[in-house]
Design a protein around this nucleic acid. Structure first.
Lengths: 225, 225
DNA sequence: GCTATCCGATAGTTTTGCTGTCCACTCTTC
DNA sequence: GAAGAGTGGACAGCAAAACTATCGGATAGC
């Protein structure tokens, strides 16, 4: 197919497709006969759909998408690393702050990791991110939110096991890497949205809003004496 | 204190503080004696720290921060709504797409909600977000990731209960709202980071990397005959 | 009175993610 | 083989977001 059809099938404007080509998010089409007549195939449709999903729904930047695509296209990068790479690429490197709050937060995180028996590579980026969050929570709210991390860690482990179950069930290696990527990026969004829904439910359960939970009793009949 | 000191205490550049004042994220200082000599107090330090945390660590946009601050400053908005408002403000309204994938995704989400017995307000924004993610997962990976949502929903409920426990334990109403806000926004980041760490752990457990998990046996001694 | 500082307004800058224009070329259709 | 629509690539332009820099008048504190 030609570019116009690729645009029609995926719903992405031609100008945007050209931009993605420039940025290396999408491989060039095959130049069949001449240097300005390229053909695109099913794999371009797949890749373009993937890119759009990561950008629009997943909220990744163009640079982050380029990084993860480079990794999944490289057969030398094992699945184990690919799965990890994703969020690393999404997060900013965040220059390591060096205040006492961070040290305390690091200690707390490492205690949780040790308690759960997690075996991790030395200093993954996600560890930094978690420490940053813990330190910030401490700075803003004191230790009111301190108890949450252990609950979150347990939930995270359960979720990660489901993630890995799902990914390892995929046979084809190429598809598996893509599934891991989408599951990691979009799964984060899904989890956030479900948490919000669950918060609303639990909140409504504990503080029953009078109008919604129990219908109002009928108003007194003014026609009755 | 004056602006320079506020800047020093919080580590936020003066120009940025002025920008936040303009944008209404920070209340004006008290004009004590003249129209160009303002004084700032502890509440400005608190508010500025909060804004920075939401923007830098939480990843909220300035507009989203303004929206949530407006809500927590309004004593008429109950806690129940404040907690909910947060992510709604963070997410883009996302023009409602109307394809069969979305319809199917909506059905699946509603089934999960019904199964868990969640009682929700009609069509909260988080529901739209979740449906978008489900539809996108379907489009990109088929139904390979379909099983994840129920696991996520259960984890989300557990997490939401911990969230509500934490928030309701706070006595002072003003502090409670702030705690809810920080817990919701930063908690999402914390959860994402912990999920990544857990993924790495589970992945390493299932596919033991030879060099890290079990130390290499000592190399054969070349000095021995 | 003198100097350093301050406040507020306005304009400028950088980054990101597209979008629009141009042009030479090519494919189809007559 | 000519016309006219379509194509690919280069490049410039644009809008939003989040700051950042400068300026002018006023004030504080000695």
């Amino acid at each position: 197919m030609r570019m116009a059809e690729l645009s029609r099938v995926t719903g992405v404007p031609v100008a945007t497709i050209k931009y993605y080509l420039r940025e290396g998010l999408l491989p060039r089409g095959e130049l069949t006969t001449s240097p300005n007549q390229a053909r695109y195939g099913e794999e371009h449709v797949r890749r373009l759909t993937l890119v759009r999903s990561l950008v629009e729904v997943g909220g990744l930047s163009i640079a982050a998408v380029r990084a993860v695509l480079g990794a999944i296209d490289d057969p030398a990068v094992p699945l184990h690393d690919t799965l990890g790479l994703t969020i690393d690429a999404a997060d900013a490197p965040a220059p390591a702050v060096d205040d006492p709050l961070h040290a305390a937060a690091a200690e707390r995180l490492d205690a949780i990791v040790a308690e759960r028996g997690w075996r991790l590579s030395p200093d993954p980026l996600a560890r930094r991110a978690a420490i940053d969050v813990l330190a910030t929570m401490q700075r803003v709210t004191g230790d009111r939110l301190a108890g949450l991390a252990t609950v979150y860690a347990e939930a995270a482990e359960r979720i990660a096991e489901a993630d890995l179950d799902t990914v390892t069930a995929v046979e084809d290696p190429e598809t598996r890497v893509e599934t891991a990527l989408v599951g990691t990026v979009l799964g984060e969004r899904l989890l956030a949205a479900l948490r919000r829904l669950a918060q609303e439910h639990v909140s409504a359960q504990r503080f029953p809003p009078p109008s919604r939970e129990t219908p109002c009793p009928p108003p007194p009949d003014p026609s009755r004496p």
